[in-house]
């Protein structure tokens, strides 16, 4: 991808990613918030593509579309007002949170601009997906297996935590009984 094409993809994508990220917490509708988060993280995949990481960009789009759709389902299940029609306010410490977030954002931006980062652009092309495949089957196999095992343990742990009448539900029932 040429520098001009990269810039034409990168700047609008970053702008939309940040604006949709802000609107996740500005909308009153939970379903809309989930879809905005999907847009923000999905467009981040486009930013990855602009940064010559085709494999990671496509993976990000696939992962986030699946994950955020599940998140929207959970929101609709657990929100008292998923459509945002009752005008509920679901924020607290708005001013302090915003001040701290702005301070952190400015701090990170200043550090990013003022630090002398190592720059060593070798080529414009993306790393060969084939090379990534060989990397998976080679010395990074252990890392990949570790990620797979982590997901497996999270699935088992998640089911155990959410199970009706599980360990924590019993503690809750006992607490209610004492009261």
């Amino acid at each position: 991808m040429s520098d001009l094409a990269t810039a034409l993809v990168f700047w609008p994508a970053v702008a939309i990613m940040l604006v949709t990220g802000v609107y996740v917490f500005r909308t009153a509708s939970m379903a809309r918030a989930g879809l905005l988060l999907l847009a923000s993280l999905g467009i981040e995949g486009l930013v990855f593509l602009a940064l010559a990481s085709e494999f990671l960009g496509v993976l990000q789009l696939l992962m986030m579309s699946g994950e955020m759709v599940i998140m929207v389902f959970f929101m609709v299940m657990f929100m008292p007002d998923p459509g945002g029609l009752m005008g509920m306010d679901m924020t607290h410490d708005k001013r302090r949170s915003a001040s701290l977030a702005v301070a952190v954002g400015i701090g990170l931006a200043v550090v990013a601009v003022l630090t002398d980062w190592p720059a060593r652009v070798v080529g414009r092309d993306a790393p060969d997906v084939r090379a990534i495949g060989f990397e998976v089957m080679g010395r990074s196999m252990l890392t990949f297996l570790f990620a797979a095992m982590t997901i497996l343990f999270a699935m088992v742990g998640g089911v155990l935590l959410a199970k009706h009448g599980g360990r924590f539900a019993q503690i809750g029932a006992a607490g209610k009984g004492e009261a």
Binding site: G21, F25, V111
Partner: peptide, 23 residues
């Protein structure tokens, strides 16, 4: 890195300012 820093700040605002667990 600036874009990533701004995105991190937006996420931090959500973590600190929202009352709902899913948010």
């Amino acid at each position: 890195l600036v874009a990533a820093g701004l995105m991190f700040a937006i996420g931090l605002y959500g973590v600190l300012g929202q009352t709902n667990t899913i948010m």
